[in-house]
């Protein structure tokens, strides 16, 4: 019985939240890695692209709500996603036209593009805050729980409750669908294959008649879609606050690098590696251990490697370890 309780506690506090968070990071890292693979720079504006996409989705949600549209028990935000994606895609395509294309044509050093992305980050940051404010926004209007802790206890007779929030289920289901769609697109369609070809060998892609501007535009649209979906899922799961999305930049970059920059499969693996490490390292295991070892041996203090304030240190530590020992990432990414 105690063993079951320990497993339920692990599920409840580590595995389920980390899976949802991992899926959100993976989607974010996919966007970063796609941009890196095709445009060959680390996009510092990606966190704020996520924030902008989420803000647009929230606006859409509010609009739908005022019209009385609802897809209860699911959150209305899912219905507003296409609007958010379209608005974000328009923004990033506009940005590419106004900012990045110039440096691409000039074949500037990647670091100049990184610098330009910092400028874009400022602007997107300002636009997002201007449109929706700096405060915290809850926009999840769906049913809160799939499994309720109290009901779970009553049904199973276990001491430990298991809570499964609907946003966590939505996150995982959406992430699986999105990743499946993305891989189908990259692996099966003409445009998707041309993107991979461009990422592999730009000069040869040109010799094959692949239109670089088209590849770049499709990449931006995909990145915008991924960013909006990742941001909206993160916001549904937690809440929306513009600054939190800027702070997501570090775990997202860490995920992309850990998996191997430019490698989509790696981005997904990296997202889960980062999320599970972050949650496991900052979780207090006293409760779980309490079930597993005899009562009087149970430690009195918290059994926690790091306090939650240091969760960014986890991404950073993993990043440093990967850079030290395997700079190309777990799955071979682009050159170091």
């Amino acid at each position: 019985m105690d063993f079951l309780n320990a497993i339920v506690a692990m599920l409840n506090f580590v595995i389920i939240p980390a899976s949802a968070y991992g899926a959100q990071l993976a989607l974010g890292a996919l966007g970063v890695t796609l941009i890196y693979g095709i445009l060959r720079f680390s996009n510092f504006a990606h966190g704020d692209t996520m924030a902008f996409g989420t803000a647009m989705t929230i606006l859409g949600t509010w609009g739908l709500q005022s019209l009385g549209v609802s897809i209860s028990p699911l959150p209305t935000a899912l219905l507003a996603l296409p609007f958010g994606i379209a608005a974000t895609a328009a923004l990033v395509l506009g940005t590419d036209r106004a900012v990045y294309r110039f440096y691409r044509k000039k074949k500037s050093d990647p670091i100049i593009l990184v610098m330009a992305s910092v400028g874009v980050m400022f602007i997107m940051n300002g636009v997002t805050r201007f449109v929706i404010g700096v405060g915290e926004i809850q926009f999840d209007d769906g049913v809160r729980f799939v499994i309720n802790a109290r009901e779970f206890r009553a049904a199973t007779g276990l001491a430990e409750g298991l809570a499964l929030r609907s946003t966590q289920v939505i996150t995982l289901v959406t992430a699986v669908l999105v990743v499946w769609a993305l891989f189908w697109f990259l692996g099966r369609t003409r445009t998707g294959k041309s993107m991979r070809a461009f990422s592999d060998n730009e000069d040869l892609a040109l010799l094959s008649g692949i239109n670089p501007e088209r590849v770049v535009a499709v990449t931006w649209i995909l990145a915008a879609a991924l960013a909006t979906i990742a941001g909206t899922l993160f916001g549904l799961d937690k809440s929306f606050k513009a600054f939190n999305y800027f702070q997501l930049l570090l775990p997202i970059f860490a995920a992309a690098i850990v998996g191997g920059l430019g490698n989509p499969l790696g981005a997904i693996a990296g997202g889960f590696v980062i999320a599970f490490s972050e949650v496991a390292v900052t979780y207090d295991f006293r409760k779980v251990l309490g079930y597993l070892i005899p009562g009087d041996w149970t430690p009195s203090g918290p059994i926690q490697l790091l306090s939650t304030e240091y969760k960014f240190a986890v991404s950073f530590a993993i990043l440093i370890i990967v850079l030290l020992f395997r700079p190309t990432g777990i799955f071979k990414g682009k050159s170091v």
Partner: peptide
Amino acid sequence: LRSDYLAIATLGIGEI
């Protein structure tokens, strides 16, 4: 390593 890696690693140390 690649020039972007320093940018990302310093982003991390700054936060920490």
